[in-house]
Simulated assay, not measured.
Amino acid sequence: MRRKIIAGNWKMNKTPSETVTLINELKPLVESNDVDVVFCVPAISLTTAVEAVKGTNIQIGAENMHYEENGAYTGEIAANMLTDVGVNFVIIGHSERREYFAETDETVNKKVLKAFEHGLTPIVCCGETLTQREQGVTIDFIRQQIKIAFLNVSAEDAQKAVIAYEPIWAIGTGKVATTEQAQEVCKAIRECIAEVYDQATAEAIRIQYGGSVSASSAPELFAQPDIDGGLVGGASLKPDFGKIVNYK
């Protein structure tokens, strides 16, 4: 049985001092022995967040990182910088990074490899646009994203990864894919991993759904056989995140 993982993607929200306030507010609401809880916060707040969650069940993740070890990459964050401050997870290839900062499937793959090299758990994002869904190419497009993202990743490492399926048309729009749509794509992702690796790897890897997840939609979504939790945006900044974590 795969352990559920529910991660909050704070995006470009909360100063370091506001981060401490929010974490202290959420701490008693997200206590769970059954679910892995991750707060992915802005880079400037990572050290503060790691300190604020000590002694709790919460782990801290970054929202992005660079694929090079170090060098002349002004404004970027290296993997060893993340591990040095106690970060465990890193979101890679979020649709906003792809849309606004020109990330590609190839750079996503480089980042995934670098994350594993440093013992970080990547939350690898994939998802289609509304046009792609309407044209019936969702599964083909997602399979391409997954196959390139995991190029040259060993089966041993792949089993540790988290994949987040986020239909782009549902991010921050209030629209949520139907339970059937979300399960269909997450099942296809697992089947793709089985093709690339084997059934054991496919059964081990955790697949989240993201895209306007709420306290009301979480129970049905997370009950699906191939959905192992959620990558939560706006709701992760509110007390409602506690209801999502304790969805049962």
Rank of each mutant, 00 (worst) to 15 (best):
P42V: 11
P42K: 07
P42L: 12
A43I: 06
I44L: 14
I44D: 15
I44A: 14
L46V: 05
T48P: 03
A49N: 08
V50C: 08
E51Y: 10
V53Q: 13
V53N: 10
V53R: 02
K54Y: 10
K54L: 11
N57V: 04
Q59V: 00
A62Y: 08
A62P: 02
N64V: 08
M65P: 06
M65H: 13
Y67A: 03
E69Y: 03
G71W: 05
G71K: 02
Y73L: 01
Y73T: 01
T74I: 04
E76Y: 06
A78M: 02
M81A: 03
V85K: 12
V85P: 00
V85L: 04
N88M: 01
F89E: 12
G93D: 09
R97H: 13
E99R: 15
Y100R: 11
Y100W: 13
Y100G: 01
F101M: 14
E103H: 03
E103K: 05
E106K: 05
E106Q: 15
E106L: 06
T107D: 14
V108K: 15
N109E: 05
K111P: 04
K111M: 10
K111T: 03
V112N: 07
K114R: 15
K114S: 12
K114L: 02
A115R: 01
E117C: 00
G119E: 09
G119K: 07
L120R: 09
T121G: 06
T121D: 13
P122Y: 09
P122N: 08
V124M: 09
E128P: 08
T129H: 12
L130Y: 11
T131P: 01
T131F: 04
G136K: 11
V137T: 15
T138F: 06
T138Q: 14
D140H: 09
F141Q: 15
Q145C: 03
I146F: 08
A149R: 06
A149K: 12
L151P: 00
N152T: 10
N152Q: 13
N152L: 11
S154I: 01
S154A: 07
S154W: 06
A155I: 04
A155M: 02
E156Q: 05
Q159M: 09
K160H: 02
A161Q: 05
V162R: 06
V162E: 12
I163T: 07
E166V: 00
W169Q: 09
A170E: 10
T173M: 07
T173W: 10
